[in-house]
Design a protein around this nucleic acid. Structure first.
Length: 115
DNA sequence: CGGGTGACAACGT
DNA sequence: AACGTTGCCACCC
């Protein structure tokens, strides 16, 4: 593997390790944090090939908007959701639900209009 | 060189 | 909400 490629892999793994417990980040977000905007696919490739399912918080990486990237009901999908729930997050179907603190438009309206 | 394939994303219909 | 397109990029045939 070329040095450049290895550097990118390191940057991505570092970004993944940097996702705090109880939170999650999309592939695209991880790519941006690794200094590789637009390369979400590369993040998936790296995770797939990394093999370190043991030491990496791979379960904190989701598709855009918290969508689980694995097929619904598949082994890895269930495992990922199980791990995320163990960290206090909740999932509905194949999607990680935002924390209650996240303001929905309705809630924002309520705040702005003091209702 | 050309075509297909991904743990993806954004946008349009 | 569900697809189809396009952009992206590393790899493999």
């Amino acid at each position: 593997m070329s040095d450049l490629a290895q550097q990118r892999v390191s940057a991505i793994l570092k970004a993944v390790r940097g996702i705090k417990r109880g939170t999650f980040a999309s592939y695209g977000e991880v790519a941006r944090r690794a200094g590789l905007p637009g390369r979400a696919r590369l993040v998936g490739t790296v995770l797939r090939d990394s093999g370190d399912m043991k030491s990496l918080p791979w379960h904190r990486v989701t598709g855009a908007g918290g969508r689980i990237a694995f097929p619904v009901g598949s082994r890895p999908a269930r495992e990922q959701i199980r791990r995320l729930e163990r960290e206090g997050l909740k999932a509905r179907g194949n999607r990680v639900v935002q924390k209650p603190s996240a303001a929905s438009p309705r809630t924002l309206d309520a705040l702005l209009w003091k209702l």
